[in-house]
Structures are given as C-alpha cells and as structure tokens.
Design a protein around this nucleic acid. Structure first.
Lengths: 141, 141
DNA sequence: AGTTTTATTGCGAATAATACTCATTATCAA
DNA sequence: TTGATAATGAGTATTATTCGCAATAAAACT
C-alpha cells in the first residue's frame, strides 16, 4: 500500500478501508456492493470515493477489475497467483480457475512482439454442470 | 444468418445491414461508430436498432463483443479462427493475436469440471513497442 | 397479389454505471 | 503545529445502453 505514496498521493482512511474490505471478502464485489460493505465501517463514505479509491488501487496494481459479462465491473484484491473466471449464463455463478498456460502465451507475445503486458484478463462464459445449454446436451464450445 | 429465423425471428434489412457493415470493416467498431457507418446506407436507421441487432447477432454467435478496457463495447463479426486482443495503455492501439493454447485451456476445463464454454475472451493490456511504460524500460509482467 | 399477424422499427424518454464540480476536510512535510 | 494541497462528500453531469409505444414491415396464409 505504501507505493501509493508516490507522486504526492496520500494514504487515507477511506482508501485503506476499501482495500481491506476487498481483501476480507473473497467474492467479486461490484462498486455498489463494496460501497455498502465499507459503509458499515464508515457510514459517511461516499460512492464517489469508492470509485476513486478503486481507480487508484487498480493503477497501483493492488486491485483488479473484472468484467464478468455484466454491464459493470467487479473488483478483487490482487492475489499472489493469477487466476481467471468462468461465468455461467444460466445461474450466474462465477468459477475461478488457474491456468499457467495463459502466462506462457503472454510471455511468448512479450518477446515476440516487444509488448509489455501489465494486465491479463481471461473470461469464459457458458453453462456450469448444473445448468444445461438450451437445446444441447453438454460438450465444449 | 438464416439461423436467426428461429423462434419466429425475422431477418430484416437493418439486421442484414449491421452484419454486413461489421464484416466489411476489419476494425473494432463500437456501437456508435457502427451506427454512423450503417447510416450511410440507411439514413433512417436508429441507434436503438443497432444495439438491438447487435444483441441478436451476438446471441446467434455471428457477432462478438469485446471489452477493450474502455467503458463501452466493441464489436466484430465472428471469424473462423478465434483471436484475442491486446490494448496499449499508451497510444490506445489494439493488436490482435492468435493463441491456440487458450482453447486447450478451455478444453481441459470443459472435461475436468463439466463446463460447457460458449464464449472465450482474453484481453491483455500494457504498452506496445512504441510506447514505454512510465518508469520502466521494457520487460514483461 | 392481397390480407393478416405480430415481430421489429424509430423516436424520445428512462436507466444505470461511472465521472466531475466545488466547497470543506484531512494528510503529510517542514 | 501549521501550511500547502490532495482527497472527500454530496450532488450533478455524462455516457452507454435499454425501454415504451405507436407506426411499419416481414412472413404466413389465402
């Protein structure tokens, strides 16, 4: 969190609170849900501050935003090992999975095309084991 | 396009136009840019119809929506071989790349967790060869 | 070809997510 | 402790996308 304090930026109670709340909850909260949780501990905090804190924390790499097929972002504290998401179009459940091959793809691209990759977002959608696709009986693709 | 005509759905001039325009342009158009292009051929078409057509074409798999780091979607006609996107945070350019390993990851997940994957979205962000990251001199990650 | 049924359109208004404004407050350096 | 200024809170603005509804047009049926 200290690396925020570059370029004259300040560590505030609100920013600490946003990050802590995100770390405590192992879910994929959207901005409003996070706002409601944070408000329990700081009833005066505003939604705008939550958005601003998230933007800052994202910039510093402490937080990541995922687009899970909805029209708004979901946020989570950055973890040690990268992971990715699958969203069920039936029940809406989100399944996390690891896939080291993804970072290999990234590494190949980095060297091959001289790209510097700072963000990797893999999102799968489909139907989970409990939900069957309409008119199909399982399978892949 | 004929598979739209299920469930009493109709193939309309506007829908055909939206799909054709998207196929003709090899860029990643957002809804409004697409609207402007389509309007050249049908000056009466409305933005709402473009959105509705896109939603329908997405459902049928003829069109795909990509979130390229901005707060709105970009659309492209579905192609034979899947590809993915890298967005430069410096200049905003978008680089497409293929990566067969991604579909292998998907296949593994499908069999391992009994998931049925219908959509795969991999989006990388970072800095292209022309844009250097602030305070770093290249590298990966 | 003409008629009927009803999905689709065009328009403007509505909604939802996120960003901005600005007076006030709080963080940090000296 | 104090001063400079970054950040906040509250409300408003903006932007992307969807909705409601009367008018239109695609497909089915003569």
């Amino acid at each position: 969190m200290d690396l925020i304090r570059t370029q004259g930026r300040r560590i505030t109670r609100q920013r600490r609170l946003v990050l802590e709340t995100l770390r405590d909850s192992q879910e994929h909260l959207d901005a409003y849900a996070l706002f409601e949780r944070v408000k329990v501990r700081d009833s005066k905090i505003s939604l705008a501050t939550v958005y601003r804190s998230l933007a800052l924390l994202k910039e510093s790499g402490l937080v990541q935003e995922n687009r899970l097929g909805e029209d708004h972002g979901h946020f989570e504290a950055t973890q040690a090992t990268p992971h990715y998401h699958f969203t069920c179009l039936g029940c809406g459940c989100v399944i996390e999975f690891e896939a080291p091959q993804v970072m290999e793809v990234v590494a190949t691209l980095c060297s091959g095309q001289a790209l510097q990759v700072t963000g990797v977002n893999l999102h799968l959608s489909g139907y989970c084991a409990d939900c069957h696709a309409p008119g199909q009986d399982g399978g892949c693709g």
